[in-house]
Write a protein that binds this DNA or RNA. Structure first.
Lengths: 195, 195
DNA sequence: CCGCCGCCTTGACCTGGATCAACCCGAGGG
DNA sequence: CCCTCGGGTTGATCCAGGTCAAGGCGGCGG
């Protein structure tokens, strides 16, 4: 077993037989990415996803006008991939870019599907993953509905302290749904008021 | 079988044995709700959910300040329930209110869990449900990030034509994340411009 | 050492939507 | 028949954040 820590984390979520995990490991491959390198480019088929072993990524939604908005940051232990597009078997609308030199463990969707046919544990795990990401999205929806940009900023750092110093202010702004200028002003206002 | 049409719809999604569906039907009970009546009140345990047989509901997030924002409208064939809270086994933060005289088919979460232990099809179905709702939330997230209130309004009616005439303008505004005055102005502006 | 680049800041101005307040209109109940 | 009430409109004013434009500054390659 190459990734015992990972196995433990998953096994805590759903009962996952060791030999099933070994099969999955055999199908996965490690990939190293440089800063700025894309794990997934928009337009590409969304037939692979990965677990971040080391580094930070941003998932950027590329809209028609070329405006970039950031769907999520993902760091160690989290999944990267164009999840929604994968579920709908569509090409990716999302660019997934390494913000640091990174290492990931890549799985092909089709391999996962094969594993699912062999043992129910994968179905269960997929369910958990879907439910977990649903909760994340719902939380963000609520933040957009009920909070100001400044409140969203505070929440962001509460919920993602591990991203301190690893993501640019520009990108935080794009995540919050405001411009970088607006974010800069919010921060300087807060500096004056509190210290 | 009391709900053959429903069975067909589900069976198209995942392979669902007829006798499993009969078991589920036996555990479910119909409930009739008057206009304004709550299917779920905030603070109540989120141990039941339901399928809308007839009518329209709104899911209202009750925030500390008493401000109401609307998470979703749900009509015939859709599920109502405090899904995120259910998954986290927390009391509901959501009020679910009938906007019309309605009929729903109620399931208890614990009954579903029992069914899941008996046959994998329920696990699969739960997965589909989670994935589907994830996609919905992600779409909404994107709308908040990339679209103006007016664009969100247009999308709203494109995506929910069946709600025409059944939801108040006030509630549409609360769904879009703006005030009823702002929505009224957007609409009158559009009326002048196009006709 | 210089110049450029990526990232952040600051200023001036504009605008979408919030807020507060008055008012309209149609339906239902006394 | 009038009163009230829920839902919608309209006006005046305010403010958060967008837009455009001009620097600042640290790091790195030439």
């Amino acid at each position: 077993m190459r990734f015992p820590k990972l196995f433990e984390r998953l096994a805590a979520q759903v009962s996952l037989p060791e030999d099933e995990w070994e099969k999955a490991e055999a199908l996965a491959s490690e990939q190293v990415l440089a800063r700025r390198e894309l794990f997934l480019q928009p337009g590409a088929p969304s037939d692979r996803f990965a677990l971040v072993l080391q580094g930070v990524f941003r998932a950027v939604r590329v809209s028609a006008g070329g405006a970039e908005s950031i769907k999520a940051f993902r760091a160690e232990g989290e999944l990267i991939g164009a999840y929604a597009e994968m579920l709908q078997r569509r090409p990716s609308m999302t660019a997934i870019e390494a913000l640091e030199p990174s290492r990931v463990l890549v799985f092909r969707t089709s391999d996962l599907e094969a594993l699912e046919r062999g043992h129910v544990c994968w179905e269960r795990l997929a369910r958990r993953v879907a439910e977990y990401h649903f909760i994340l999205k719902e939380r963000r929806e609520q933040e957009f509905l009920d909070l100001t940009a400044e409140e969203r900023l505070v929440r962001f750092w509460e919920e993602h302290p591990h991203l301190k110093g690893r993501v640019s202010q520009r990108d935080v702004a794009a995540y919050l749904g405001i411009t970088e200028e607006a974010l800069s002003r919010i921060m300087s206002r807060r500096r004056k008021q509190r210290g």
